[in-house]
């Protein structure tokens, strides 16, 4: 069964820090591979992922084509409160963009 691809994020407070888990829906094709009909698959991979907490940029990730399909990240931010706004923006090599946001709970 194919589900509609959707970026997912969850941010929770755990022992005083903000725990973020992020799953982006993206094929992450490096451009070096072939499909079942032996046709080259065009490169399509996320290059830049940025994370903000409220107005502060806290993390920037640059990716190549060797990041797994549907990139997953889990990390913590020092401190934080319930209701903090977490924003993720990503851009891929074709110029497609994504925006994911959530409130810490």
């Amino acid at each position: 069964m194919v589900m509609a691809a959707e970026d997912r994020i969850r941010a929770t407070i755990r022992s005083g820090n903000t725990h973020i888990r992020l799953l982006l829906a993206h094929p992450m094709q490096s451009g070096r591979n072939f499909d079942i009909n032996n046709k080259p698959i065009e490169a399509e991979f996320i290059q830049d992922i940025r994370c903000w907490r409220n107005d502060d940029e806290v993390l920037a990730i640059k990716c190549g084509g060797a990041t797994s399909e549907n990139p997953y990240f889990s990390f913590r931010l020092a401190g934080g409160d319930m209701g903090d706004l977490i924003i993720i923006r990503w851009v891929d090599n074709t110029g497609a963009k994504g925006l994911v946001k959530t409130q810490v709970n």
């Binding site: 820090n17 907490r53 502060d56 806290v58 993390l59 060797a66 990041t67 797994s68 990139p71 997953y72 990240f73 889990s74 990390f75 913590r76 931010l77 020092a78």
Partner: peptide
Amino acid sequence: TILLPLKTRI
């Protein structure tokens, strides 16, 4: 602000 550990998949 970032605290390790950081997990990902490659």
